[in-house]
């Protein structure tokens, strides 16, 4: 159990230099968690926005704060959770003891939590109300990249878990940049209904424009952000003789605040199990 009063929470996100919606879920979840008054301090830091991950090293100067839980608001393990965040925060494993005695606890990313499966199912049901699941394909869309396969692995894991429930006619993952490509959805699916949920933390150009263009529900080209956001409100899209339902990014669900908290609590359980040693750095 997280001790009250002497613990702080640091939510780390990617952020963006061009898209203000990138950091919005992290900021909203931080506010929701702050209002629960579990932590002495709740702050966000970002790779591409302010406060930066480097700034985060200065954010917990309150001597009352003895522990800092670092929860990556990322959809999967990968380059950012394994390389960038530990490097920028000068973490030396799951536990890092600072020179002032403060203990930083590096938690699993939110996307790794088992409750994400429930949220995917809830989001799919929400955007396609009353649609018969036995006549529906659920497509979970990840980024996919040749550089790091982890995000594709995370999407596939969700596919396996939801498939095992036997609710949908078919559950598949598809990607923007690697096969199976989301652009091939008419060929990948055979059901009259297709529900597409982007497996991303936040809405941005991928969910506003790139995926809608690949799906064929929007034309390529610059569009006003307000117009782009409207893409989520015009379900179903009638294409190729099917009803296509398109959701916004899964990470925008307010329940992700609970998942952030759960990942902090999971840290305690995991380290108790493993008896992980604390490490000391000189900063």
């Amino acid at each position: 159990m997280i001790s009250q009063g002497d613990a702080a929470l640091l939510i780390t996100g990617h952020g963006s230099t061009v898209n203000p919606d990138s950091s919005a879920p992290s900021l909203a979840q931080a506010e929701a968690i702050r209002n629960r008054r579990i932590f002495r301090e709740v702050v966000c830091s970002f790779w591409k926005e302010e406060p930066s991950l480097r700034d985060a090293l200065l954010l917990f100067g309150d001597p009352e704060i003895r522990e800092v839980y670092v929860v990556p608001n990322f959809i999967s393990e990968g380059y950012f959770t394994q390389t960038v965040i530990p490097r920028e925060l000068e973490l030396e494993g799951s536990l890092t003891r600072r020179a002032n005695g403060q203990l930083w606890k590096y938690c699993e990313p939110v996307g790794s939590h088992s409750a994400v499966t429930e949220l995917l199912l809830a989001r799919a049901a929400e955007i396609a109300p009353g649609v018969e699941e036995a006549e529906t394909t659920l497509l979970i869309v990840g980024h996919g990249t040749a550089l790091n396969d982890q995000s594709a692995v995370a999407a596939k894991r969700q596919v396996d878990k939801i498939s095992a429930l036997g609710r949908y006619a078919s559950v598949q993952s598809a990607y923007m940049e690697e096969p199976p490509l989301i652009a091939d959805w008419p060929r990948l699916t055979t059901t009259p209904n297709v529900v597409v949920v982007p497996f991303f933390i936040s809405d941005g150009l991928h969910s506003y424009e790139d995926i809608p263009v690949l799906l064929g529900i929007e034309k390529e080209g610059a569009m006003a952000a307000t117009r782009l956001r409207g893409v989520f409100r015009s379900n179903p899209h009638r294409l190729h003789g099917r009803a296509l339902y398109y959701a916004n990014a899964i990470g925008t669900a307010p329940q992700f605040a609970d998942i952030i908290l759960a990942q902090a609590e999971n840290f305690e359980r995991c380290t108790l199990d493993l008896g992980a040693p604390a490490q000391t750095v000189s900063s």
């Binding site: 830091s45 700034d55 985060a56 200065l58 954010l59």
Partner: peptide, 10 residues
């Protein structure tokens, strides 16, 4: 001005 007051305090 995110992070600036913290930097000043340090």
């Amino acid at each position: 001005y995110p992070g600036r007051l913290a930097a000043l305090a340090v």
